[in-house]
Design a binder for these strands. Structure first.
Length: 652
RNA sequence: GUCCCCGUAGCUCAGUAGGAUAGAGCGUUCGCCUCCUAAGCGAAAGGCCGCGCGUUCGAAUCGCGCCGGGGACGCCA
């Protein structure tokens, strides 16, 4: 029921109690998590612990002296004979050398727990809301969104494996200027079918369509100029035809005319609530959903900003509501002052400001100036909607909030934490301090093709979408694009810039980390398949007592690390640690395989040795498979070389 | 100007609840297939962990100050 590390930790815990009884330690120390690490050097034993440093600090003793006294106690309490030797090293490390039975048991731990090996409960079922992607539904996802998506999804998987109760959520920004602008851009193309057909034909050839010459007459200067807008217009035109909705011809900015045209759908005529606008972002959202699906990513919740504004049926205007409550509790105030650089604006009333600079907020969460939440004309800002959104998150009873954002939003982080803190104070709920919200900032992805940067930019029209990237790196197997994108996106921690080389991602060789790991898994499968064919596979609970090589010992001990790696990745919110672990483990396996090709092949003459090694390979396969599943990457049973890779080999 | 992130091998980067002789991939050089996948493996070379001061038994890791690179700072979203 336990794993090797748990058994050793328990042993050390017994030793600590025993030391307490013997008067070595002054008093009951707060129970600490005992750290076990595998020393880099084999001469330092199988496992090392810095337990004596922690105890010495708490007891005010010399670590080395304490370790000297502690070592015999460990031997004494080791009734099962797990420990072959205990050495005190350096300034106070305890280096443990395990008995054969002890380290070999890691193999059977893995095989007994199977797909469940690696799971733990360090998260204690803490209820976490993990919001990620939240790309505006105004266009296709680009690679940067993709990275946030992969990070968020993988983090959710890793945290769940470590015993956190995670709910994932996508926040749809489907209200405001940007979606209104989207609707206007689509509407312009809908009004001019012939122009649209001509432009789509040009785009289909891969050529740019000149702006404004080939665009509709009234196309807004700051509208969305991509081909996908005309495609959306094409799609909507057909859809409108089938339900018999005429395309309105009144000017886009004439709210009254729209209100008359759409009395049921949009009685106020607001641009972000028009039928065309709504259908437009829904169409973008469909594409986003299918792109995410291509990466194996889904969400527990899709949370629409519309419902916060009371635009959806059965919802109240939570944005105005929270603004009122903030004013009532003096967290916000009315002020008519107008910024000097914005004289064009004609405020019709007083704006409402959030007291982000309040001294009730700890400095870390305090803003540099109070921000507007309700404009002078009564329209809420994006910030106001975010306040309402986070108020709603709090009300749902989570213990902790995590938001994955693009690094360009980092100026927003402390403001958002201030909001959480203020809402906590306003609600009289002391749990909600600013640090209950955790923001993970994801840096940009630099796309390369064979080492050279791929030009990107919305304006130039060479905007590289996530879908383009997935398609380009899909080779052979249908999941290969997803596998490559996911794994390679996880090879850097979130806050480091990432170079993504399309050529490397396509390669079926050792320079491509995802193939390196998948190939390792396939190689293990191939060995097991052969053993099965030859009838050499042992029973699943066979003890691998014949494992004896140093390489086998190291591989086995590495297997036992998986639960700690997952726990650490979950707590640090760094799923890349899992990817690194799998790469390291595969490297160790490939080395073992090659080094002992002639002297100790897995399937050899000797039955006992063969059985033991097959058990090890089985366990390795299980661990690699479990790890890959956690990353959302497939674990293939066999790999097939691409034709072009074979050609390259032949030429070289 | 204020704030945030980054600076580790030629290149791209791991390693930071302070720990033993700082790691990997790529690139370079030299080796290894009668074989369960050479789609692989081994070896060599390569480092004032940006600089300085401090905290202590001990600092790539923590603190302060510099230097260098990137980014954020709207009644935008």
């Amino acid at each position: 029921m336990t794993t090797l590390h748990e058994r050793i930790r328990e042993l050390l815990s017994h030793a600590t109690h025993s030391a307490l009884g013997a008067g070595l330690l002054p008093q009951a120390l707060t129970p600490q998590e005992i750290q076990l690490e595998r020393p880099r050097q084999a001469s330092h034993g199988d496992l090392a612990t810095n337990l004596c440093f922690t105890l010495a600090k708490a007891a005010g003793k010399n670590p080395r002296a304490l370790a000297d006294a502690f070592a015999p106690i460990v031997r004494q309490v080791d009734r099962n004979g797990w420990i072959q030797s205990v050495e005190v090293a350096g300034p106070g490390f305890l280096n443990l050398r395990l008995s054969d039975a002890a380290w070999q048991s890691a193999v059977t731990d893995v095989l007994r727990e199977g797909a469940g090996f690696g799971l733990s409960d360090v998260g204690r079922q803490e209820r976490v809301l993990l919001e990620f992607v939240s790309a505006n539904p105004t266009g296709p996802m680009h690679v940067g969104h993709g990275r946030g998506a992969v990070l968020g999804d993988t983090l959710a998987r890793v945290m769940r494996a470590a015993g956190f109760d995670v709910t994932t959520e996508y926040y749809i920004n489907n209200v405001g200027n940007q979606v209104g602008k989207l609707g206007e851009s689509v509407w312009c193309w809908m009004c001019e079918p012939e122009l649209r057909a001509a432009a789509l034909a040009i785009w289909a050839k891969g050529d740019p369509v000149p702006f404004p010459d080939a665009f509709p007459r009234n196309f807004p200067e700051d509208g969305y100029r991509g081909a996908y807008i005309a495609e959306t217009a094409e799609h909507l035109s057909r859809q409108f035809e089938t339900v018999n909705w005429p395309v309105p011809t009144a000017p886009w900015h004439d709210d009254q005319a729209w209100a008359v045209d759409e009395p049921m759908a949009n009685p106020t005529g607001r641009a972000d609530n028009r039928r065309i606008t709504v259908q437009s972002w829904m169409f973008q959202l469909d594409r986003i959903t299918s792109d995410l699906k291509a990466l194996g990513i889904g969400f527990d919740n899709w949370f629409a900003e519309r419902r916060l504004h009371g635009l959806d049926p059965q919802t109240i205007d939570a944005v105005q509501d929270v603004a009122r409550r903030l004013v009532a509790s003096d967290w916000a105030y009315e002020d008519a002052s107008q910024p000097a650089d914005d004289e064009d604006a004609t405020p019709t009333g007083k704006a409402i400001f959030f007291r982000g600079t309040s001294e009730l907020l700890p400095k870390a969460f305090r803003d540099t100036k109070d921000r507007v939440i309700i404009r002078g004309d009564g329209r809420p800002t994006y910030f106001a909607a975010d306040i309402a959104y986070h108020d709603h998150k709090l009300a749902r009873g989570f213990d902790h909030l995590i938001n994955v954002l693009g690094a360009d939003h980092h100026g927003y982080v402390s403001r958002l934490k201030g909001v959480i803190h203020a809402l906590g104070l306003m609600r009289g709920d002391p749990r909600w301090t600013g640090d209950r919200l955790e923001v993970l900032l994801v840096q940009m992805v630099a796309l390369l093709r064979d080492g050279k940067p791929v030009p990107m930019g919305k304006r130039s029209g060479e905007f590289v979408t996530l879908r383009d990237v997935i398609d380009e790196v899909t080779t052979g197997e249908p999941t290969s694009g997803r596998d490559a994108v996911r794994f390679l996106f996880l090879l850097r921690k979130a806050d480091a810039q990432l170079d993504f080389d399309l050529e490397v991602a396509r390669r079926t060789s050792m320079d491509n980390p995802v193939y390196y790991v998948q190939y390792g898994h396939a190689r293990m499968c191939s060995i097991l398949e052969r053993a099965e064919k030859e009838g050499r596979l042992p029973a699943i609970d066979t003890l691998p007592t014949a494992l004896a090589l140093d390489d086998e010992r190291a591989l086995t001990l590495a297997l036992a690390d998986l639960p700690d790696v997952i726990a650490r990745a979950a707590r640090a919110r760094e799923p890349h640690l899992v990817a690194y672990y799998l790469t390291d483990l595969c490297r160790a396996f490939h080395g073992y395989y090659s080094r002992h090709k002639s002297d100790a092949r897995v399937i050899g003459e000797d039955d006992a040795a063969t059985h033991a090694r097959l058990q090890l390979v089985r366990a390795l396969k299980q661990v690699i498979g479990n790890g890959l599943r956690l990353l959302g990457v497939s674990a293939p049973e066999r790999m097939t070389a691409l034709p072009d890779a074979a050609e390259t080999d032949a030429e070289g």
